[in-house]
């Protein structure tokens, strides 16, 4: 279990996911925009450390740090001539894409389905949004698990890309994955419906949500980032 100190309200995490991507894609090349990007790109690894994903945080820093540094530095020094545009462009793309992907990963591993439901219901989102959102979060790990099982089964049978060719390989890889995921979906559906999901009353959820110190800090950092971007 994650230390309580680092736990965020699911809504804080979702807001962070959204704002981070807006900043990464809309911030231009001014000094203020650069600082804003720096602030936002520094938040996910802190969260990862809080979740004890040291390795993931290190890999992220090792990729994004140099990419961002190279982007800002090369645009100012212009040392490579023509190739510079391509290199800086690629570095910029990496430095803008990776934080979003990493943050999405953090969101999936850190938000509990129960907290997501509680959080979204608390801000009066309709069932229409809450139930699919919960199912999506619940099913991402399921698909990964099923996918791994299918890959292992293919290895066991000797169904390699080289043996069967790309089209057949795709079919063997995808069809059992889709089938078993759908079967899990049906079972989930039955188990949920027979436990009263869909009853038209307001459910009280026991999952703990609400502002805690970590939320205040994170929201503060986000506000600072946005502020610098607008001012600078």
């Amino acid at each position: 279990m994650a230390p309580e100190l680092f736990r965020l309200d699911p809504r804080t995490t979702l807001l962070l996911v959204a704002l981070l991507n807006v900043v990464m894609f809309s911030a231009g090349f001014t000094a203020g925009a650069g600082t804003a990007r720096l602030i936002f790109m520094a938040i996910p690894p802190v969260l990862a450390v809080g979740l004890r994903r040291w390795k993931a945080a290190l890999v992220y820093l090792a990729l994004v740090g140099p990419a961002f540094a190279f982007e800002s530095w090369s645009l100012d020094t212009w040392w490579l001539g023509g190739a510079n545009i391509v290199a800086a462009g690629l570095a910029s793309l990496a430095a803008r894409l990776a934080p979003g992907i990493f943050m999405a990963y953090i969101a999936v591993i850190s938000i509990r389905v129960s907290e997501l439901m509680a959080g979204l219901e608390a801000i009066h989102l309709p069932r229409l949004a809450v139930i699919p959102a919960a199912v999506i979060l619940r099913f991402l790990p399921t698909v990964r698990e099923e996918s791994r099982s299918v890959q292992i089964a293919m290895n066991a049978r000797g169904l390699s890309l080289a043996r069967v060719g790309p089209l057949a390989w795709l079919e063997y890889r995808l069809i059992p994955l889709i089938m078993s995921t759908l079967r899990c979906g049906e079972e989930l559906s039955q188990a949920a419906l027979t436990r009263g999901l869909g009853r038209p009353v307001k459910a009280n959820r026991i999952a703990r949500i609400g502002m805690r110190p970590a939320d205040v800090l994170t929201l503060g950092a986000m506000a600072a980032g946005i502020g610098v971007w607008i001012v600078g």
């Binding site: 389905v113 188990a191 949920a192 436990r195 009853r199 459910a203 959820r205």
Partner: peptide, 28 residues
């Protein structure tokens, strides 16, 4: 109340405390 064959797929949430509470929560 129903219990099914496949233990893997019967969960709507991902932590046990909330899962045990899930049906009772839905009662309101």
């Amino acid at each position: 109340g129903s219990v099914f064959q496949n233990p893997r797929a019967q969960f709507f949430t991902t932590d046990t405390a909330s899962e045990i509470a899930f049906g009772a929560e839905n009662l309101g």
